Amino acid sequence: MVRTPGHRHPRPQNRPLLRLMHIDRSIYDRRLLTLRSRRATMNSSERAAKSPDVELAPTERRLMEAAQALFATKGYSAVGIREIAREAGLTIGSLYHYAASKEDLFLQLMRRSYARANARAREAAASGSTPVERLASLVRMHVLSEVSEPSVWRLNRSELEVISAEARAELVVLRDEFEQTWRQLIEDGIAAGSFAPDDPAIARFSIIQICNGVSLWYRPDGRLSLDEIVAIIFRQALALLRAGASGTQPAGLSS
């Protein structure tokens, strides 16, 4: 064939080979993602089974701190997995060694926080010889947990609607474990004659919400010290739990 100016000979293409290469690459990509997911899931399960007080490895701790800071400042939906990796000084591949996804990373944060809170709540509720002493201990623990990890607890209350139903269900179970400690303490106090709330459930919800709210407004340089705040909240909690002791209602609230 005579080559003329401006004429290009078509390059032979082995289309079956290209298709084969495409298929092989797709299979490779899927297998890589599957293996990565299995590895991350296995690692997540192992970490979830650890005691909450087990110290994380430096790289994992750096990743968790970066994710927590970004979630707290920008919101879960506005943060990307690459941004988290960059903030933690990791490659995407390294990040996937510790978490299968952004949601998995969020769940790991919340699992550890709830595990710590649940363990501390059980310990606090068991300390003291009377229900009133146990109440004082539990109020203090709850407030201190809120103040020490405010961003984590705010995330738990504000981001549940944007995660999957499965993840949300898991966090609700962990939250219910925390509330169960409060429920049991109040029931013990009622049985012992120390508490007489108008409605145990409403009293429990009210006390928990008061404690939850401290992280929203507390300032270390504020008018009251943390010990003073804890003492005030304890007295409010005790008033709620003894509200029905006299059998009377404040004026204007009678049915």
Score class of each variant (00 low, 15 high):
140 R>N: 12
124 A>L: 02
164 S>I: 14
148 S>Q: 15
119 A>Y: 02
116 R>A: 04
167 A>P: 04
121 A>W: 00
160 L>T: 09
114 Y>W: 04
167 A>Y: 14
126 A>G: 15
109 L>Y: 02
124 A>Q: 04
114 Y>L: 06
110 M>L: 12
169 A>F: 05
146 E>K: 12
119 A>H: 05
132 V>N: 10
112 R>F: 05
154 R>M: 14
135 L>S: 11
132 V>H: 08
136 A>W: 00
131 P>L: 06
128 G>S: 01
143 V>H: 11
128 G>R: 00
156 N>T: 06
116 R>G: 02
144 L>G: 00
115 A>W: 02
130 T>G: 08
141 M>Y: 00
154 R>C: 13
145 S>W: 05
131 P>M: 08
163 I>H: 05
114 Y>K: 02
158 S>V: 12
147 V>I: 11
150 P>D: 04
171 L>C: 10
168 R>G: 14
127 S>Y: 07
112 R>K: 11
125 A>M: 04
171 L>W: 14
158 S>H: 10
107 L>D: 05
116 R>W: 07
134 R>Q: 14
123 E>P: 01
131 P>Y: 04
105 L>M: 07
149 E>N: 14
168 R>I: 10
113 S>K: 12
108 Q>H: 04
115 A>F: 04
137 S>R: 15
122 R>G: 06
155 L>V: 06
117 A>W: 08
138 L>G: 00
157 R>L: 11
121 A>G: 06
137 S>W: 03
167 A>H: 14
134 R>P: 02
166 E>G: 15
141 M>V: 06
167 A>K: 08
151 S>I: 08
114 Y>D: 06
130 T>C: 08
149 E>P: 03
163 I>D: 07
147 V>E: 13
133 E>T: 09
121 A>V: 00
129 S>K: 10
109 L>K: 01
118 N>A: 06
160 L>W: 14
163 I>W: 13
164 S>G: 15
150 P>K: 11
112 R>G: 03
156 N>E: 14
157 R>C: 04
129 S>V: 12
110 M>F: 03
167 A>N: 14
130 T>V: 05
163 I>P: 13
133 E>D: 15
128 G>M: 00
165 A>W: 11
138 L>E: 03
148 S>W: 05
164 S>T: 15
149 E>W: 14
147 V>N: 10
136 A>K: 03
128 G>A: 03
116 R>Q: 11
162 V>H: 13
142 H>F: 02
149 E>D: 15
115 A>Q: 12
138 L>S: 02
110 M>Q: 13
143 V>T: 04
158 S>I: 07
110 M>Y: 01
166 E>I: 11
